[in-house]
């Protein structure tokens, strides 16, 4: 199919495993169809590298439809690129122009050590969930699903918080590399629902402590996280987390 194509210059962060320092290397991406996604554009560059018997650029990705949270890089200073509420895999090249220079860097945070090139280790986010991001219920013991009516508004608010894909863009975007948006989304989902109330206090306390322990920065209410979050998670969740936490500590 014939569609418009553009040529770009990429400056991509390359850093081998175990290497102390990385560097930006320059590549040209030629004849990029504007219908491609950003990751497909990287595929094209990697194909070219392979053909020249060079090692490809490592980047994380899986679903390529904006839901698994695996992809992500800072593109020209913006996590997941400049389009609003869009993951990197859903960012399409029609939003770039011929001749653009694109700088691509990994998520940068002490809590996300770099593995290779654009790939970082986000297991800190799993650690936080392990600290309390669940409702303690065993399979088999649940009452009928409709036994507990939950207002549509509450269910929707919980859903909106639960929509977080755990990509870590909030951390990457935060000037302090804080994970508050991520933590608050999970705490909020369960704090809103009656099923989650019995453990709400303990959950807020343990998750916040684990977050601190993992080496994330502190929240200064800069709200960059909300601006860059691909799922539009609201900072009102952070306020709810603060509330839940303080309530838990003072009672």
């Amino acid at each position: 199919m014939i569609s418009k194509t553009i040529n770009l210059t990429l400056k991509v962060w390359r850093q081998n495993r175990g290497e102390k320092k990385g560097r930006l290397e320059t590549y040209s991406a030629k004849n990029i169809s504007v219908d491609m996604s950003f990751l497909e554009m990287l595929d094209v560059v990697n194909e070219e590298l392979t053909k020249n018997k060079k090692e490809t650029i490592a980047f994380d990705h899986d679903c390529r439809e904006g839901i698994c949270g695996m992809c992500g890089a800072v593109v020209n200073g913006r996590p997941h690129g400049h389009e609003k509420e869009t993951t990197l895999c859903q960012l399409h090249m029609r939003h770039f122009s011929d001749g653009d220079i694109i700088v691509i860097e990994p998520w940068r945070a002490r809590a996300f050590p770099l593995i290779k090139d654009l790939v970082v280790d986000r297991s800190a986010l799993d650690n936080i969930i392990q600290a309390g991001g669940f409702i303690s219920v065993n399979a088999g013991g649940a009452p009928d699903a409709n036994a507990l009516p939950i207002s549509k508004e509450i269910a929707e608010a919980a859903f909106n918080a639960a929509a977080c894909i755990g990509c870590g863009a909030c951390v990457a975007a935060c000037p302090n590399a804080s994970a508050m948006l991520f933590v608050s989304a999970k705490v909020s989902q369960f704090a809103l629902l009656p099923q989650g109330r019995p453990e709400a206090a303990r959950r807020a306390r343990t998750m916040v402590r684990m977050m601190d322990q993992c080496g994330f920065g502190n929240c200064s209410n800069e709200t960059e996280c909300e601006a860059e979050c691909p799922k539009g998670i609201s900072i009102s969740n952070i306020a709810r987390l603060n509330r839940e936490f303080l309530k838990a500590e003072f009672s």
Binding site: I135, V137, A142, A145, P149, S151, A155, Q195
Partner: peptide, 20 residues
């Protein structure tokens, strides 16, 4: 049983105005 368990886990399924 699946639906019962999932609701107990705090999965925010769609609900109607009655809360069901």
């Amino acid at each position: 049983n699946i639906i019962d368990h999932c609701v107990a886990q705090g999965i925010p399924f769609a609900r109607d105005y009655g809360g069901f």
